[in-house]
Design a protein around this nucleic acid. Structure first.
Lengths: 278, 278
DNA sequence: AACTTCATGTCGCGG
DNA sequence: CCGCGACGTGAAGTT
């Protein structure tokens, strides 16, 4: 059963309010409003946004987004609202506006959207979206691949423990090298920065403190490292190992993990995208 | 001049493609598409999303958002695309889909949205939004308030330097207490955690290293502190000072800073919101 | 519920 | 353009 879409072009404010109330009360719809509005927010922070043309989205679960005509981020939002109210308000200059008030419970945050002119409002009832979202190449997967194929870090390296708890936090990989040294490995899926180095240093120090008479190496594994981070790394006597995440992925992401057609398709896509880039 | 809104309800795929191409080519419109689609992404990461009903937004600046019917975050997106293409594709089962291909330049990322059924498409040309976005209560403002009113941290404290550079980073506030001790202050606008404590510790240590024969105190200023952070703080011999950000703000946010009507309005709003919460 | 860590984080600022 | 830190970060997972 396809979703039911209802809409008004250039609705009067009274119509808009009625439309919104109707679709918020019965069964929650996805609401799309294109309108001139101002926005106030108060909660963990507070903000004011003057009048302008914006896209307002209200999702069935109470998420509210106010988008300006540019950029990725909503200018104001509510991840989920406990209370959603629509009412008319008369401004000082006796102009009327439709107010959408969204209140989030914890942390308590209030969002007020004042609409002075609406260009389009639409509501969709019965949207269905149960598809699985499959993501690749996140830190966990890289870590698992390297745990199974430590030779990609260094020949002779043997991984003893994945996500080894230490005070405080977790070591991504812990192993023993060909010389019998303890090796602590910190993995980053993006350019390693100073804080990654500090984190590794902390783990190495903590390990040394607990095991005073053993030799410990610290290796930072990442696709690249910032200049400052490299300097600090050298200063601390730690090491850097560059990896190519995509290559690792192509090489090792195991068949059993992408056995379903759905999972396999991503690799086809990567191939296509790579071709398309030339 | 109000924006021009064009739309189709339940467009055929060919119509959809034509509509999109038209509004993407001439002058960029804000595009809203409610449709059943699947999405592939490849770039810094990679993902696959099967078919489902979603809201697709394409902004005039090339930002692309794919929203599922719930939650704050888009499931797939492109912060700004360099290339935006729309074309028809025939699947293996000979069904046709409209493909929206968005390519981001740096980092190179490709987004493919395959639409199998469209419920609504709308385009808005000439949206105007030049309003200023004013935000309050961010770390910078809290820092400035405390710099002007150090007695809120401790009686007799005198602030010498704001954003004092140190190796590495910047001390939020640096001052001298009533006993003549150096005081290093780190401010957080949310619950202070372990990393905030470490950051402060680092600054204090760096200061001590540079000034070996002076006494230094480190104060973490925040609305609250996590249990673990407090433990570590005590271990390091550092101090915590609790502040109430909203109270500070009400008390000190200076008249000259909110001299314009616009800026003043946020306080009215906060009042109203506070009343509304009862 | 508190807290930690990851993220296709995004965004802005400074060198 | 890098690199770093703040963010109303959000979201997921663990204690």
């Amino acid at each position: 059963m396809p979703p039911i879409v209802d809409f008004h072009l250039q609705p009067q404010l009274e119509e808009l309010a009625k439309f919104l109330r109707q679709h918020l009360s019965v069964r929650r719809a996805l609401l799309i409003i294109l309108a001139n509005c101002s926005v106030e927010y108060e909660g963990r922070s507070a903000s004011h946004l003057g009048e302008g043309d914006r896209l307002i989205i209200i999702k069935p679960d109470g998420a509210v987004l106010v988008h300006r005509p540019w950029g990725y981020s909503p200018v104001n939002w509510q991840p989920d609202s406990k209370v959603l109210e629509v009412f008319m308000e008369t401004k000082h200059n006796s102009e009327k506006v439709v107010v959408i008030k969204s209140v989030r419970a914890r942390p308590r945050e209030v969002l007020l959207i004042r609409i002075s002119k609406a260009y389009l409002v639409a509501a969709a009832q019965g949207l269905e979206d149960s598809a699985e979202f499959v993501e690749y190449l996140d830190e966990r997967q890289i870590r698992d691949i390297l745990a199974s194929h430590p030779e990609e870090i260094e020949p002779g390296l043997r991984i003893v423990r994945v996500e080894k708890p230490i005070e405080p936090g977790f070591i991504d990989l812990y192993g023993i090298d060909s010389q019998g040294n303890n090796v602590i490995i910190e993995i980053k899926r993006v350019t390693a920065n100073v804080s990654a180095v500090k984190q590794l240093k902390e783990y190495v120090d903590a390990f040394k403190a607990k095991n005073p008479h053993t030799r410990v190496r610290g290796i930072l594994v990442a696709p690249s490292i910032s200049k400052e981070a490299l300097l600090l790394l050298n200063k601390y006597g730690l090491e850097f190992k560059q990896i190519n995440i995509e290559k690792l992925y192509r090489k090792y992401f195991s068949l059993e993990k992408r056995s379903t057609q759905k999972h396999a398709s991503i690799l086809d896509f990567i191939e296509k995208a790579a071709l398309g880039s030339r």
